[in-house]
Design a protein around this nucleic acid. Structure first.
Length: 815
DNA sequence: AGCACGCCGACT
DNA sequence: GTCGGCGTGCTC
């Protein structure tokens, strides 16, 4: 007896055991998709994860219905990768499978059945259900499993299908492959033997009586002799209206032409000039030599290059080398909107061998890329984190650009994983190398580099020796005391903007808070407007004239009077980016001031329009949230101002200071990219704060040393490993009790100092779910595995309590 | 996760 | 009297 462990697209622990029918035993392989029955009536596409001969003891295994692939669709490296992810992040294989596959590759009850061609059916041997199904198929050809429910009892469906497949009457329709067949384009050529053997004049004289056919033939002949290796599209021949399909058909019938089809994407290649890579500067050359050396030792690299130092040049060199060695490259970005510059340069050089993959593609497009990757047609893939799951054949290099970016580990998407760390593991499985690149590496990566787990390469000058911007701290308290302020701006800051405007240069103002005012409060009774779904106050958005909840998206109209005491004294408190924009517009009425945040960029092409305005220097001042720290590489931005820098530090998060540093540095990088005269003004009530002081010093080693000291002092990563467990439910007392209970199990297995909580989450209710959390601080190193296994044990023990099964549970490892 | 079964309240 | 709410149990 042969059995297979199958992963199903369900959020359930582990794999499921199915019996392999004898006829499939010779063909079935790990990594193939199979169709299996599950529960009474469902059929799922699962993945074969293991093949063995161990009889299950506690249940009877069902049979696999059929295989869907002739070759494994998941390579063995990916099988290992899935296993690692599920073990490391304590998530189910089913969640990974769901995330990894485009939905059309894992059709569930959307699977179609059809009659086998040329069969004779012996109806007398069929039962009533089998007969119904056959009759239905005779009428409709294709039938969907959900449709079958209409005339066969749910419990009987799987049995019926299985028996008809066994009888060889019906089969699974490979709709998947047909549906996603690449577009084919018709091409024409004159058969070569015709040109070699026959006398051309003879052919032409035969065509004398049909001049149109002759002209068409001559046209094709001339194009073919002009460029023997070129392709002639059939559709092009009819473009000017001189010829019609009948002329073509006549020639084709006389065997003077040959029609053939090719997949569209294989043929198009970039026809422009191939651009040479720019020449590297000395600093870049030495950095590249360091990368080479690290790769020789099979070591991965942290490329820490200040803004505009030209990390991209180094990437391009290494991509080129990797491709020349016949291997493929995965280039990861935090979000796909940042592809512009890198794409332009790679497209010229690699044309059709370049691919793109991100979550905004349609399912069709995803499957298309999947196919190209599987066929090894893509040399370089520019992609977001989802691409880590593609069936790479020959991966040689992964580049993780902007490796510090939190978009690599979004909390809202399951399974939770950090694409940066996952990339390192995946590369290991393919024996590929990794470059993590950033101007502001994460503290974790920096620490790994200092511990020589990664090779640390520092590019500390901008390309072309352009100077880095200068930082200046403005003491806002002092400015206020000496009455040198206007609203939220010190006069000094306003003067600097004036100066920049006078020199016809542009200014960026960063204020990382959406909306106009954070809170609207009643002065008489203290009422504030809470979101009805979440325990957070609603933010006032003046431009949309409404209140918005930034967590669940709920909107409400702005109250004119206090709903509680009817007082009209409503006070706006807490400054948002809209207010900063309004103030600046009033101070500089003659100038063009634009706002850039998720709210103003929501309209289609809003981003593109603003981008062009800035590029054409129509915009003088850009006021924005953290959005402005990415992708805005313009030559005439000379000043960056951060009027309320303190707001970034007052966040309850041990990474707040790191984030503030990263954001300030990234935005500052936009200033003086060409002139080298960039200036950054940080306005703060705490100019003595270490982070601001260190940023001003602009000494990278000192900044990271400070972060690492703080992290060590308070036992935070990278000195400990964090696991956050979050429980959610609509009923507060239920989650509360459940989290207390989970806490007590954890305390049974883990030392007290490792466990914080359970306690209410900082946002106690979100989208009508109450949330509690438990934070685990586990030691790094050898003991970590042991401790994590105990966490797993605790979670399993918790899961056994049926009363808590309706509680949603989130586990975030390295959150 | 997704589904069936079973037990309670509020409706034609 | 039944429809439908969600609590519980189960899936190879």
């Amino acid at each position: 007896m042969q059995y297979a462990q199958i992963v199903l697209p369900l959020n359930l622990r582990g794999t499921f055991t199915y019996k392999i029918p004898d006829e499939l035993i010779p063909f079935i392989q790990i990594g193939m998709r199979v169709l299996v029955p599950f529960g009474g009536k469902k059929i799922y596409t699962g993945i074969v994860f293991e093949i063995h001969d161990q009889d299950p003891e506690t249940f009877v295994a069902k049979d696999i219905i059929s295989t869907l692939d002739e070759q494994p669709i998941v390579p063995k490296e990916q099988i290992n990768f899935w296993n690692w992810l599920s073990g490391y992040y304590l998530c189910n294989l089913g969640e990974i499978y769901r995330f990894a596959f485009p939905s059309s590759l894992k059709l569930e009850s959307e699977t179609y059945l059809k009659l086998k061609p040329n069969i004779t059916i012996e109806f007398e041997n069929l039962d009533i259900n089998e007969m119904h199904l056959i009759q239905a198929l005779e009428v409709r050809q294709l039938i969907n499993l959900t449709d079958i429910e209409a005339f066969i009892a749910k419990k009987e469906i799987v049995k019926t299908i299985n028996s008809l497949i066994d009888l060889q009457y019906i089969e699974i329709d490979e709709k998947i492959s047909e549906k996603y067949k690449a577009k084919e384009v018709a091409y024409v050529k004159i058969p070569e033997q015709l040109l070699e053997n026959e006398n051309l004049t003879e052919i032409l004289s035969k065509l004398n009586r049909s001049p149109k056919q002759k002209d068409l033939f001559l046209l094709i002949l001339s194009r073919q002799t002009e460029n023997p290796s070129g392709f002639i599209k059939k559709s092009e021949l009819f473009e000017n209206g001189n010829f019609a399909g009948t002329h073509f058909k006549a020639l084709s019938d006389k065997k003077l032409l040959e029609e053939y089809y090719q997949q569209k994407d294989r043929l198009e290649s970039y026809e422009g000039e191939i651009e040479d890579l720019d020449v590297l500067s000395d600093a870049q050359k030495s950095a590249k030599a360091d990368v080479d050396e690290a790769f020789e030792e099979k070591k991965n690299v942290l490329l820490h290059g200040v803004t505009s130092s030209g990390k991209t040049h180094i990437y391009l060199e290494k991509i080129d080398e990797c491709v020349n060695e016949g291997k493929n490259v995965l280039f990861l970005l935090p979000e796909i909107s940042l592809t512009k510059q890198i794409t332009q340069r790679l497209e010229k050089k690699y044309g059709k061998q370049l691919g793109f993959y991100h979550q905004k593609l349609t399912d069709f497009e995803k499957v298309e890329v999947w196919r190209r990757i599987k066929n090894n047609d893509v040399k370089i893939l520019i992609a977001t984190r989802g691409a880590l799951f593609l069936p790479f054949q020959n991966l040689g290099l992964i580049i993780v650009d902007e490796e510090h970016d939190s978009a690599y580990k979004p909390r809202e998407v399951t399974p939770f994983f950090n694409a940066k760390d996952a990339a390192l593991v995946l590369a290991g499985l393919y024996d590929a190398r990794v470059i993590l690149g950033s101007a502001t590496p994460s503290v974790e990566s920096y620490y790994l580099a200092k511990k020589e787990k990664l090779k640390y390469i520092f590019l500390n000058e901008r390309f072309g020796k352009v100077k880095l911007p200068e930082y200046e701290l403005i003491n806002f308290k002092e400015a206020q005391d000496s009455k040198k302020v206007s609203g939220n701006f010190s006069l000094q800051l306003i003067d600097e903007i004036k100066k920049t405007l006078h020199e016809k240069n542009q200014t960026i103002i960063l204020h990382n808070r959406r909306g106009y005012a954070n809170v609207i409060e009643c002065e008489s009774c203290g009422y504030v407007n809470y979101c009805s779904n979440c325990d957070v106050v609603m933010t006032y958005h003046k431009s949309a004239n409404e209140m918005k909840c930034h967590y669940c998206g709920q909107r409400a109209s702005k109250p004119k009077t206090c709903p509680k005491c009817y007082s009209e004294n409503l006070n706006e408190r807490g400054v948002g980016v809209e207010q900063i924009h309004e103030e600046i517009s009033k101070i500089f009425p003659e100038n063009e001031v634009d706002r850039m945040d998720v709210d103003s960029m929501r309209k289609k092409f809003a981003y593109e329009k603003l981008y062009e305005k800035i590029e054409d220097r129509e915009t003088d001042i850009i006021v924005g949230t953290q959005m402005i720290s990415k992708g805005l590489d313009f030559d005439h931005i000379e000043l960056v101002a951060i009027p309320k820098a303190d707001s970034m530090l007052y966040v309850q998060d041990f990474r707040a200071e790191e984030r503030a540093y990263q954001l300030i540095t990234q935005v500052s990088g936009r200033a003086g990219r060409v002139s080298g005269n960039g200036k950054v003004l940080i306005q703060t009530f705490n100019p003595d704060h270490s982070v601001f002081q260190l940023i001003k010093l602009n000494n990278v080693a000192k900044i990271y040393k400070y972060f690492l000291t703080e992290r060590q002092k308070f036992h935070y990563p990278p000195f400990t490993k964090l696991i956050m467990i979050e429980l959610k439910h609509t009923k507060e007392d239920r989650v509360n009790r459940a989290s207390q209970f989970l806490g007590s199990i954890l305390r049974k297995y883990l030392p007290e100092e490792c466990i914080l909580g359970p306690e209410k989450a900082p946002i106690a209710r979100l989208n009508n779910l109450y949330q509690f959390q438990i934070l685990l601080k586990l030691p790094r190193g050898k003991n970590y595995e042991k401790f994590k296994n105990r966490v797993l044990l605790s979670l399993k023990e918790f899961d056994e309590i049926t009363a808590y099964q309706s509680i949603k549970k989130g586990v975030f490892v390295d959150f």
